[in-house]
């Protein structure tokens, strides 16, 4: 197990380093002189030179990269060009809203995905199964931002059940906060639950044909216990990976869904940054999101190794 963890960690480091180089180059290759932003458009030649020295821009690139990386590791992503706030403070301001949305969507889609997947597997080939299958196919073909618009039109503008956009702090007013959270969370959860339902169904169907399930039935266990204790437990192994791999979809989806509902999260921060050409903000947020994504993937793999000994021992075959 230790060897497996070590091997997987060693694979992660080059990926993180390469991504960080890419993100670093983003700022350096971008048009415009960062010093000009800090010193202001009317800065004198000396002022500009001073700003360059202060920002370390007179150093060669490898040194700049090393300095940037050591700062970034400590959460120091520099000062936002436009607002002049430290990027880290801006991130901390919007992070809770994004986590709130992502978590709500994750809980919702897991619940929905499991129920639909199990129902589909237990009623294989019957009407319910086919209906769920068609629903899933449609859910996968409907872009989440358009789904969001439709939900706003139906539930906020026509039925007037829920607010069309915005966000309320949970601490300030839990009831209102949930009302604002409902539509964005559903929007973000739909595709995810469709993917999960497909995998839970397929994985459970595989397991249901195994001998030990027949044995469990043969010894007279109630069907409920056969499904929950014997089948579902083993069917969970591949599902764990899928959920980890879907985390990227969740992150990317959150960026877009936030834009639909005017949700003040990390997506809104980075999009504002791109439009205003505020490179330090874009760089900081990208670093944070990519690192999170890579680490989640790593955790998924490690968890998979814990659940399935064959993976741990590197017996996957081929690659």
């Amino acid at each position: 197990m230790t060897a497996f963890v070590a091997r997987r960690l060693l694979q992660t480091i080059p990926v993180l380093l390469l991504s960080s180089v890419a993100i670093f180059l983003l700022l350096r290759l971008a048009p415009g002189d960062p010093a000009q932003y800090i010193a202001g458009p009317d800065a004198s030649a000396e002022g500009l030179a001073a700003a360059r020295r202060e920002m370390g821009l007179d150093q060669p690139w490898p040194i700049q990269y090393a300095v940037w990386l050591t700062h970034a590791v400590r959460g120091d992503f520099g000062i936002a060009f436009v607002t002049r706030y430290p990027v880290w403070d801006l991130v901390l301001q919007v992070l809770p809203a994004t986590i709130e949305l992502a978590l709500a969507a994750l809980i919702l889609s897991t619940a929905l995905g499991f129920v639909l997947g199990v129902v589909g597997a237990l009623r294989e080939g019957q009407f319910v199964d086919l209906a769920v299958g068609v629903l899933n196919a449609i859910a996968l073909g409907v872009p989440n931002f358009w789904l969001g618009l439709i939900l706003i039109i139906v539930f906020a503008l026509v039925l007037r059940w829920l607010p069309p956009s915005g966000h309320v702090d949970f601490v300030r007013d839990p009831g209102q906060s949930l009302r604002y959270l409902t539509l964005p969370a559903i929007t973000l959860a739909v595709q995810l639950s469709a993917v999960l339902a497909r995998f839970v169904r397929a994985s459970l169907l595989d397991v249901l044909h195994e001998d030990y399930v027949r044995t469990a039935r043969a010894k007279g266990l109630p069907e409920r216990s056969v499904i929950v204790r014997h089948a579902l437990r083993n069917a969970l192994i591949p599902v764990v990976t899928v959920m980890g791999l879907q985390f990227g979809r969740l992150l990317g989806g959150a960026v877009i869904v936030e834009a639909v509902f005017g949700w003040p999260g990390i997506g809104s921060l980075v999009i504002t940054g791109v439009v205003a050409r505020d490179y330090t903000v874009v760089q900081g947020v990208l670093t944070l999101l990519v690192t999170t994504f890579v680490l989640i993937n790593l955790l998924t793999d490690l968890l998979y190794g814990v659940l399935d000994p064959a993976v741990r021992l590197g017996q996957k075959g081929g690659a």
Binding site: P14, L26, L286, V290
Partner: peptide, 25 residues
Amino acid sequence: MRLWDSVLAFPPVLVGIAVAALLGP
């Protein structure tokens, strides 16, 4: 393959954001 792994480390929306930030939308 490590290079492509690190591209995979960017959720595609983020690749789009990075390119738009660099080259303009």
